[in-house]
Structures are given as C-alpha cells and as structure tokens.
C-alpha cells in the first residue's frame, strides 16, 4: 500500500486536479481529453485497489478490515462516479466535479495507507 504506485497515483491526481480546476476557472466544459485523463487516473486507482485487495489475503491484514474494505470500495467507485456526473454536466461545473474528485482521491489513498499501516500481522 505504501509503494511507488501510491505516490505516483497521488502526484498524477493532484496535477490533473490543478489542470481541471484551471479549466473550470476558465469556464470550459469537460473536453474529451479531460474525461480521458480522469479515466486514466481512475484506472491507476483501480490497479492500486486491486493490489490492496490481493494484499488482504497476505500476512499483514489491516486490523480494521471492515473500514479498509469500505474505503477500498469508495476509492474504486470514486473516479467513475465523477466521470458519470461530469458527462451529464457539459458546463464548467463538469470540470469542477472532475477536479474535486481528483483532489479527494489522494486523500482516500492516504487514508487507505493510514488504515493499512495498523496490521494484525
């Protein structure tokens, strides 16, 4: 959970968030690129969640497994939900939805790391 993949996900999500918030500030609707970029980050997050799920069957299970599972489901569903809502909103607010999602994703990843660091071993 603490590998370079999490760091990469957090950095990429934050960079994309800055871009999307700028786009919203400039009053642009989500372009194909904006949606695809968010989808790419969602894929990165999905891989991260998959790795975490595989880790659940290993030796170092987080002691708070229920919370961890809840966060995993939320995290993997986050990007797709934002993209779905943004597609219904072809205005600047669509980009703001995507931007907010990309701001919250790093928080979710950090929370996952926090919960995962307390293990039953």
């Amino acid at each position: 959970m603490n590998g370079p993949l999490s760091v990469a996900t957090i950095v990429v999500a934050l960079v994309l968030a800055a871009w999307l918030l700028l786009r919203a500030a400039l009053n642009r609707a989500p372009s194909r690129f904006d949606l695809l970029a968010t989808a790419a980050v969602s894929v990165l997050v999905a891989v991260l969640v998959l790795v975490a799920v595989v880790g659940l069957f290993g030796d170092h299970r987080p002691s708070d497994t229920a919370t961890f599972g809840g966060y995993l489901i939320t995290t993997i569903a986050f990007g797709p939900t934002a993209i779905y809502l943004a597609r219904m909103e072809p205005t600047r607010w669509g980009n703001l939805i995507l931007g907010v999602a990309c701001l919250v994703l790093p928080v979710l990843v950090l929370r996952l790391q926090q919960i995962a660091s307390v293990t039953v071993a």
Binding site: A29, T81, L85, E89, T91, R92, W93, L96, I97, V100
Partner: peptide, 24 residues
C-alpha cells in the same frame, strides 16, 4: 461553453457538483 439558464433546475450546474459532494 454551453451555459445553463439562470432558472435551470436545482440539480444542474453547481447543483450537480453539490450533489456529488453531498453524496460523498
């Protein structure tokens, strides 16, 4: 950019962003 009229529904525009954040 397509902009919505000021009297558009409660759940469009900024309302949709609010919907997302409230949902979270």
């Amino acid at each position: 950019t397509r902009t919505r009229p000021a009297d558009a529904a409660l759940n469009t525009g900024l309302g949709r962003l609010l919907l997302f954040v409230y949902g979270v």
